[in-house]
C-alpha cells in the first residue's frame, strides 16, 4: 500500500492504495464516481473511458500509480443538469441512449475527439468511436449527438 494523490474533476483526493489498482476501481469504489463503468477490464469496450491529461484513456488499464498527479476528468465532472456540457445536452436532445451503459464512455471519448478536432466529419466521429462498443445498437443516435454537440460548441 502507498499513498496517492489524485486530481479528479478539480478536487484532490489522497488515498492509501495498492499501486497496481486500476484507476477504474478507485473511482468507483473509493470515490463513488460510478459513471465510469466496468465493461471488460481489457481495454476493449471503452465503457470506462476517462480523460487523463486531456487524453481519453481506459481507466481499467491505467494503474492508479500512473494516474496520480495528473488531471483526471470523469463524466460527473463534465456538466450538471443545471449546467450541462454541450455533449450531454446533445445526447439528451437526440435521445441517444438505450440501456446507456456504454454512454459515459461514448461521451468521454467524444469529448477527447472534440478537443482535438472541434469540427469532425461523420467519418471522423465514427472512426474515433469505433473502439467503443455498444450492444443495443444506438450508434446512429450517438453519431448524431456528437455532430450536434460539435455544431454547438
Amino acid at each position: 500500500m502507498a499513498e496517492f494523490t489524485l486530481d479528479i474533476n478539480g478536487s484532490r483526493h489522497t488515498l492509501d492504495l495498492d499501486a497496481d489498482t486500476p484507476l477504474l476501481y478507485v473511482l468507483r469504489n473509493e470515490l463513488g464516481l460510478t459513471a465510469t463503468r466496468f465493461g471488460c477490464g481489457l481495454g476493449e469496450c471503452g465503457a470506462c473511458t476517462v480523460s487523463i491529461d486531456g487524453r481519453s484513456l481506459r481507466s481499467c488499464q491505467v494503474p492508479v500509480a500512473s494516474a496520480a498527479g495528473r488531471p483526471i476528468l470523469t463524466l460527473e465532472g463534465l456538466g450538471t443538469p443545471e449546467d450541462p456540457h454541450p455533449l450531454q445536452q446533445a445526447f439528451i436532445d437526440e435521445q441517444a441512449a438505450q440501456c446507456a451503459f456504454c454512454i459515459s464512455g461514448m461521451i468521454m471519448t467524444a469529448h477527447g475527439l472534440l478537443q482535438r478536432n472541434p469540427s469532425p466529419t461523420e467519418a471522423d466521429i465514427k472512426s474515433a468511436l469505433s473502439a467503443n462498443l455498444c450492444g443495443c445498437g444506438t450508434h446512429l443516435r450517438i453519431v448524431r449527438a456528437v455532430q450536434r454537440a460539435a455544431k454547438v460548441s
Binding site: S56, L57, T109, G112, L113
Partner: peptide, 23 residues
Amino acid sequence: AKAGEALFENACASCHLPDGRGV
C-alpha cells in the same frame, strides 16, 4: 498523423500509453 493519433489513443494508448513508452 491526426487520424492515426486518434485511433492510437482510442484503441492502443490505454495500455501502451500515449507516448508509446508503456506502463
